[in-house]
Design a protein around this nucleic acid. Structure first.
Lengths: 167, 167
DNA sequence: ACGAATTGCCTGTCCGAACAAGTAAATCAG
DNA sequence: CTGATTTACTTGTTCGGACAGGCAATTCGT
């Protein structure tokens, strides 16, 4: 059985990464996929230590940064989904990192504010981002880091342009 | 209210991207995050046209590539989760792209094989990867594409090393 | 051959993300 | 002022991903 496989003994032994056929049509896309996956794993691992789930830390950082916000503001800031934001806030509230106060001037709106308890998290989260950056960049020189950032921003720009332009 | 915000009027008008405080500690990490997000959006958009959800296409490509596989093989190939694979296969089976046959030699195992109907998808999925790569790379020259791939692979290697090494 | 691990798969739970739909409040047009 | 529209938020559903169990079949050690 398994009587197939004329194509591709496609496993890259150097990394632990099986390379599917997609790599042929889009090697960079596949690399982005793998890097993003690893990156998310690291974020998740680091955040779990402080009791946060990936995504929640972004909400908290914006709150620490800009102070109390309406839920809708957070949605716009994170370019997220209102539904996702509602539930993320509910979980942060349940975890005690966030408080929800009805807005005085607009009864539809809810003001989200970081609790005092959350302030203890702030330094930890910033350390996490530093640690994450170190793990990501590893041995890259300063010049290479600049180059990396430049390339990523060009890719970002390409993807934004492709999204708005056509389809 | 919203009586805060001495820090950072942090929105980058060039791109539609709000820049949270994290960017200070990890500009490259944040760029990876944004690129990954956009990249995933494009994959999702392209895949929806052919009736697949992100992630399902990888299973199908491995099946097309290597022929019928056990579920456990797919888990290892995609470095995925057995539970996730079970449900992904159930959905692909329900969609008619995959068939599940009990393995003759090991009664625990299930052989997953692509259906004839799925073969019509294959070319479409390959086109999607080509289109995705084009959107991603946009105007980059051949040399720049090589450079990009090289950098991404170095980052990948850094992250793998950081994961296995410490913690 | 027998019991103990291991392997393969499934289920339930919790999380984020996206989409659709609905409710309430505010705003706008006539 | 009334009716339509927009805005803010919530809920429900479906998806992938991760983790914790659980069951059955297989393999290993004795």
């Amino acid at each position: 059985m398994s009587a197939e496989g004329p194509t591709c003994p496609d496993t890259n032994p150097a990394e632990g990464v099986p390379v599917p056929a997609c790599a042929r049509n889009g090697p960079v896309s596949h690399a982005i996929f793998r890097v993003a996956r690893l990156h998310r794993m690291h974020v998740g691992q680091l955040l779990r230590r402080v009791g946060l789930h990936p995504g929640q830390e972004l909400v908290m950082m914006h709150l620490w940064d800009r102070g109390p916000q309406r839920a809708a503001d957070l949605v716009r800031l994170l370019d997220s989904d209102a539904a996702t934001m509602t539930r993320t806030i509910q979980r942060l509230e349940h975890a005690g990192f966030v408080r929800r106060c009805p807005c005085a001037t607009d009864k539809r709106a809810t003001i989200i504010e970081p609790t005092a308890a959350s302030l203890a998290l702030r330094q930890q989260v910033e350390n996490i981002w530093t640690e994450l950056e170190n793990r990501t960049l590893g041995d890259l020189t300063a010049a290479e880091r600049t180059e990396t950032l430049s390339i990523l921003e060009r890719i970002e720009h390409n993807l934004i342009r492709a999204a708005t332009q056509d389809d």
